[in-house]
Design a protein around this nucleic acid. Structure first.
Lengths: 338, 338
DNA sequence: TTGTAGGCGTTATCAG
DNA sequence: CTGATAACGCCTACAA
């Protein structure tokens, strides 16, 4: 910048004024400075700027489990949509659900002097997060909670949505409804499972423990579990999958058996092309995009003090059942075989 | 930091030494300083650090079209996998293929003093990019080229892969092979289209212009185009879709017509659950994850001067045809109806 | 092993 | 409207 000043024959501050488009600069001077800037290819240095202004730079951190996961990608878009117009830049990193990576990432973001951090899912590094919160860092959680700290969180209505879906199956005559869920230590998985139990109880259906399977959080495990379910002397007439990957496993296991099996499938989280699959499935679709927007708005509001530090924000899911066949009424023979 | 020094009764530099884990510090002093740090909740300031060291901070920029698109998400993961071990943090932003946004984003990244930038797809803001390259910024392009500048680019073997797929169809007896492609101004779309033409010529098949459709780059347009193809008096026996979204449109249009139509479908880019769809499709799968890794390695190598500024790096695609039915031989009646 | 002086590029303050 | 000077928080170089 000094170079520019020298080149233009003006003072340092004048250059600064031009660069920042401050008022009270004569056109002549501005032009001269601009010429020098162009000629020297000058770029103002964000670090120095931030240092001098002592203000928190317009930088945000977004910590996610996996950038390649469409859910988190969509959250990311939601965040950007809100933060970019506000002039923020987002620094992103994936943790692979590894608390160590998460910790390192967060430390780095803090050092980069981000104004706030959005953390999407992955429990485990909670202690560090709580420390940061106490330390005054603005943090918002997405798709997870953080107990023991004043944090606002944005989640789906996991339990309620699952309960509604199961209730719907019951309404349509299903009695043997299976649930395949993921790792029970994951909060969302726990919530969804409880929603299932809730609805089963509300429908006065006794719970067959063989139909309530947990810890099958990936495609292959879910496919194997589905095979096992179908092998029972009285197989379920409906299967609720607690995650998209579980859903694809269920579909894979069902695929090719012909649609005669008549098993209705509902998957939590949107499955791509759900209605073109064989068999088709109904989905409890989260709205990650909106979750990102909500989280970003909450963070920005928190930064300018216009919102409390701790809120529980719930983004509703939508039930997608385009091919009505997906959750068709249970076949009579299956129901009456009791 | 001065606070810490005062609190611990030591000098500024001693605190700096402890923070940076420099050698030659007595344990007693280190402990005292560490205590003060913990107590005051001190965090070293990345901006100041960067400013003082005059070195380019360990920051990288990644500019993509859409973070919610699994392709770019996977590229992002590939980049991270390489850059994080090297101690870099990645700042990300989506452009929505809008040159204006892209420009703004890049400007911002430059101001943040990133050491280099990876730009994934979206042509249009080329002039700005060329300027930056001339200005000395290290830039690597992914899934696009940048003419008129010394940039290294990482792409798939778009043309060759498409040609191979079409040749395979020809080998299996197909004569009427349709191609549905996206916007011809997009480089990848152009390459793939040319691959189609190439293979048709190599197979000595005359090109029916009604079967070579371009500019149908989304689901609905592709579905409509497919309907039109099926309405021809001599419909194609095979359809090659130049993008995943086009592929889903084709599948949607074919879905429910029964598999009797016997149309083989090949989609460029991996379609989720391709083999469970009705009808199933074969895929020309790109490897975005690897593309990201390659790009990141190229950028890092360029930064430390161990690689030239300009290289054309090609990451091969894989042909996925798990359900062999997908590209089954053309049905005789369709072929002989000539 | 520890402390001191000077500077990194920018902005804010206060004179001219 | 313009310019000199002092921060900002840290690091390197040099001295004690």
């Amino acid at each position: 910048m000094a170079d520019v000043a020298a080149h233009a024959g003006v003072s340092l501050k004048s250059v600064s004024r031009v660069v920042n488009q401050e008022p009270h600069v004569s056109e002549a001077l501005a032009a001269r400075v601009q010429a020098a800037i162009d000629q020297l290819g000058f770029r103002r240095d964000g670090s120095a700027r931030q240092l001098a202004m002592a203000a928190a730079g317009r930088l945000l951190g977004y910590v996610q489990v996996d950038a390649a996961n469409p859910f988190f990608g969509a959250v990311s878009r939601g965040i950007e949509e809100v933060t970019r117009p506000a002039g923020f830049l987002v620094m992103t990193g994936s943790t692979d659900a590894d608390p160590g990576r998460e910790a390192l990432l967060i430390e780095t973001l803090i050092e980069a002097r981000v104004a706030g951090i959005i953390v999407a899912a992955a429990q485990g590094g909670d202690e560090l997060l709580r420390d940061e919160v106490r330390h005054g860092t603005a943090i918002v959680c997405v798709d997870r909670l953080l107990s023991g700290a004043e944090v606002t969180s944005v989640t789906s209505d996991n339990r309620e949505a699952t309960a509604r879906a199961v209730s719907l199956l019951i309404e349509r005559g299903h009695r043997r409804i299976a649930y395949l869920g993921g790792d029970e230590r994951v909060w969302t998985a726990q919530e969804r499972y409880e929603g299932y139990l809730e609805a089963m109880a509300a429908g006065s259906l006794e719970l067959d423990p063989r139909l309530a399977v947990r810890g099958v959080g990936d495609h292959d495990l879910a496919a194997a579990a589905t095979d096992a379910l179908l092998g029972l002397e009285r197989p379920p007439t409906a299967i609720v999958a607690g995650q998209d990957r579980i859903g694809t496993g269920v579909v894979a296991a069902l695929h090719g058996r012909g649609s005669q099996h008549g098993v209705a499938v509902i998957v939590f989280d949107a499955v791509p092309m759900a209605d073109l699959l064989d068999p088709p499935v109904a989905c409890i679709a989260q709205d990650p995009f909106e979750m990102g927007r909500v989280a970003a708005r909450a963070l920005l509001a928190q930064l300018d003090g216009s919102a409390p530090d701790r809120r529980r924000l719930v983004v509703p899911t939508r039930f997608l059942d385009r091919p009505s066949a997906a959750i068709s009424p249970a076949r009579p023979d299956a129901t009456t075989a009791t």
